[in-house]
Nucleic acid binder design. Structure first.
Ligand SMILES: [Mn+2]
Ligand SMILES: [Mn+2]
Ligand SMILES: [Mn+2]
Ligand SMILES: [Mn+2]
Lengths: 218, 218
DNA sequence: AAATATTTTTAGATTAATCTAAAAATGGTA
DNA sequence: TACCATTTTTAGATTAATCTAAAAATATTT
């Protein structure tokens, strides 16, 4: 049984290794978890001892198969809780992440089974991220970041890659909800910023940082 | 902000002081929390330092006004979660306590507000215990333990005082749900055991320990 | 390749929460 | 009142999780 802290490390390391496709460095983990490299070294030793990570001094860590399974179960819980909060308790999508960070550590297989059932076996969370099933299986919708799109390309927002309230409230403000139609009107090659049209109406100018975090599909 | 352990101590001490109406002893706390007296001494010092308890060496502890408020908020969360699990997720009443012990420590005022709303502002939990409102106000139904009833007295089960799965499953087996009608048919003075009729049908023989934990009202 | 910079690990402390064993206080009984 | 049993506290350890500062390993740049 993993502690809260162990689960948080595991989840962060899993996400980092998915992103980079490579082994994960001590500093990268420390930065994401707002902690110190020394603390990370201690913890990855412990998780290696439990067979959750494989680790050689100075070489970074990799998530083992059992670690991957455990990580996906925590992620499953996080995303099911976020879905519950939005669908049933009328939370806004920017209000759910921090609460889900707590709820994801509740240990009760029955609770998760019943919650999944109660929600109608949702496949995606309020930010468009896929919810792994009880075996850890999931499928992300085919999608592309707006930042990668050519001028005149349009599509439906299916996922947003930043969970922070600040970003999500900005999306609310410009109307870029999941399901909204987005069309690229113009692109500034110099800094990657662009002009987009939302739902055939509003025209807004967004920075590269924003366009990298909004993903669309046809 | 109280830690999980601090909240658990506070809740236990609050319940003990309500029961006895007096200051609470170190040993009583240790027994209820399955811990050692030495650990209790450490913790009550800490909670006194935070103004949650008042404490003098060797004299036992009392819950302060701010402690009482905090305890009632934890109890509120525990009972709301139990209600949610039974009403919405179809848990049986014997399956909820351990999960609620975890969920009661989640910190999110909005979550509790919305959960209360979602459940329709319930006044009692699945075991008949009153749910304090956001100000800590609550009212238990007038009620009496079957063990205190005379022969021929009858009433409706409104509350059960033991949360353990073993006890609750036994009540399921004999049909003594909340809302069931119970009539005392016979009473053995020697050991307090009694014969009761449930819902005008089944006749069962129950021990004193059981009769003390089933409470009825007219 | 040597010097320098960066990253990572180790050493040593700290805090919360727990324990065992021993000492101190309390309360009842001879 | 003095002794004894019980309760409570203290002393000293332990484990998880964290930190700072210093040492060691690795990577980069002259
Ligand atoms: Mn999230
Ligand atoms: Mn999400
Ligand atoms: Mn309970
Ligand atoms: Mn209850």
């Amino acid at each position: 049984m993993l502690s809260f802290a162990e689960e948080n490390y595991l989840k962060a390391i899993y996400h980092l290794s998915e992103q980079s496709g490579d082994s994960v460095s001590t500093n990268a983990i420390a930065e994401i978890l707002n902690t110190k490299a020394a603390s990370v070294t201690d913890m990855i030793k412990r998780l290696s001892g439990k067979g959750i990570l494989s680790y050689q001094k100075y070489k970074g860590v990799n998530v083992s198969e059992s670690g991957r399974k455990a990580a996906l179960q925590v992620i499953r819980k996080h995303r099911l809780w976020e879905t519950f909060l939005v669908e049933k308790l009328k939370f806004n999508w920017d209000e759910v992440h921090d609460v889900a960070e707590q709820l994801e550590h509740i240990k009760s297989p029955l609770l998760i089974k019943r919650m999944d059932e109660f929600l109608g076996y949702p496949k995606y969370d309020p930010h468009g991220d896929p919810i792994p099933d009880e075996h850890g299986e999931f499928k992300a919708k085919p999608q592309v970041a707006i930042s990668e799109c050519e001028v005149n390309r349009s599509g439906i927002v299916v996922s947003v890659k930043d969970d922070s309230p600040e970003f999500l409230r900005y999306l609310d403000k410009i109307g870029a909800y999941l399901g909204a139609k987005v069309k690229v009107l113009d692109k500034v090659d110099f800094d990657g910023s662009m002009e987009i049209q939302i739902d055939n109406k509003k025209i807004v100018f967004i920075s590269r940082e924003v366009s990298e975090n909004i993903w669309i599909a046809d």
